[in-house]
Amino acid sequence: MSAPKFRLEVVTPEGVVFSKDVVSFKAPGSEGQFGVLANHAPFMTSLEIGPIELFDGSESYYLATTGGFTEVLPHKTIILAETAETKGEIDIERARTSLERAQKRLEAKSPDLDVERAQLSLHRALNRLRVVGVK
């Protein structure tokens, strides 16, 4: 018997990125990474920067998100993400440069440094590179 599936939609302000029946998905919740299988109880949480992994029974898909939230309902799950980029959409060069820029800024420790912003930018860049599989 094949594993039960449920409908998963990944929606961003620029359109529906993914809409398919999946067996499971993993996402970076604000309380840590979580995984969901079919018939999960209704659940809602906000998302952090991180990778979303979707498994449709034969293949895994990866998306890089910068935050949003997830709503799990018995037969349908919606991930509302601010951004959700697939491997092909990620600009590796750009992610690399912003990674270096953020690292430099954090190392320089100048007094007017917005540490929070630099760290967020660092996380976003690392996450993109991780999803592409470069890092």
Partner: peptide, 22 residues
């Protein structure tokens, strides 16, 4: 529907409102 909110409904609202502004 009664959801399980993680960490809490208030915290989820806090995260959503800035998104709504954007």
């Amino acid at each position: 529907v009664e959801y399980i909110y993680e960490p809490s409904a208030a915290a989820v609202l806090d995260a959503i409102l800035p998104l709504n502004l954007n």
